[in-house]
Write a protein that binds this DNA or RNA. Sequence first.
DNA 1: TAGGCCACTTGATCGGCGTCAAGGACCGCC
DNA 2: GGCGGTCCTTGACGCCGATCAAGTGGCCTA
Lengths: 239, 239
Amino acid sequence: MRQDVHVADVPVLCVSCEARHRGVCGALEPAQLLALAKVSHKQNMSEGTELAGDATRADTYSNVLSGVVKLTKSLSDGRQQIVGLQFAPDFLGRPFKSENEMSASAATDVSLCSFPKSAVDRMLRESPGLEHRLLEQTLKELDEARLWMVTLGRKTAPEKVASFLLLIARNSNPTAARDAAAAFDLPLTRADIADFLGLTIETVSRQLTRLRADRVIRIENNRHVTVDSLARLAARSGD
Amino acid sequence: MRQDVHVADVPVLCVSCEARHRGVCGALEPAQLLALAKVSHKQNMSEGTELAGDATRADTYSNVLSGVVKLTKSLSDGRQQIVGLQFAPDFLGRPFKSENEMSASAATDVSLCSFPKSAVDRMLRESPGLEHRLLEQTLKELDEARLWMVTLGRKTAPEKVASFLLLIARNSNPTAARDAAAAFDLPLTRADIADFLGLTIETVSRQLTRLRADRVIRIENNRHVTVDSLARLAARSGD
DNA sequence: TAGGCCACTTGATCGGCGTCAAGGACCGCC
DNA sequence: GGCGGTCCTTGACGCCGATCAAGTGGCCTA
């Protein structure tokens, strides 16, 4: 019965939403959640869709409900670097700035729950718990970014590719033991992997075939990867 | 007179402290500032001092009052990467985690104002303004980290070195015009610059002499750099 | 003044990864 | 079934930056 009352308080949109528990929405009171749900909407974007351009006005925030969003920065001559991957239930958007400094696009088919920036900014001022969640997520992203800087700056191509596979493997099953097996689909094309690792697609391809030749991984349909021993993969990741 | 009253409220330790205005302490009420000042202490550390080791217990936070602190991560075989530089009045420490995941050390002589973690954590819970400041700083650091990821992943050695010089130049005089002249001391040794850029010290040295040969910079005593036109330097930074 | 140490520079050589080019696998479309 | 397109793989080659090895200059100590 208590459950019923509880569920009755929760907006329909949010009932089965992962972000309500693990994401930033978990910090909201039922009344706030209701207010926010009224102005938010779920949307599905297909792979490749540009979600927010570089130096464009950003007037919405989003939660990632499923799929993977890539954050990229480019140099003027077209060289590109992926500076972050956002998985469910990550929060998408840069508080306290109205301009995007990077572009976000759907690396896979993605579903998002989007809110007007103004509504969230108001709640941020009223509800310290929300700001706390946002701080936690931002610190997590900062840790991840700094960890990746080591990969970009100091690892070799074979180590980079192994590190990437490990990242995806761990993300697709966070509870797996360190030395377990794993199977997952790569959420990125070879070109995206290259942009994430600071390599070319040829080098990525060569390293993947090398890992396959050495029986560390198997690949089906270019996307589906099977790893018999994550420990063997980790041994190739350099750290 | 109002000024006198105001100053009288401020702890001696904090009266002339930059962090009280631009740093996180600016979010504190006089009473909180007083309470914090009672348990904090200023300390000077000389170049090279290890401030916090990898995987050690971290039980203090600090504000950087002067000098530069480098945050580094290492791979097991000794390869090292600097993942962040902290200048005054930056906040030093990782809230909500008791273990360091990276090591911090003094890149130059440094003066710090250190607080027990517990005292700050308590204030974080009581004072939303403090958490807000911290979120702003963390977002700023995340932006910087992601910007640097492009440098690490996609720029050539000449571009990396030019980018580094620009970063230091802009930091030593944030208000300078984009095409002004600049003069500053490098806060890092060649070895540190290499670890920051993901290069070797030989390559860093070669690129610096090239910039000098091309009259983009002048160098005295290995550390003091003069730039006649920041715009010319920026033109070599790749972005 | 000699000697050692440290940070940095400079030169010669090597190899990892980028570049260029071709070819294969899979797809939808006509 | 042929055809073009996209994504990926594979091979040949060359260059940028790492590696190895001296050499220079400033500073400290004796």
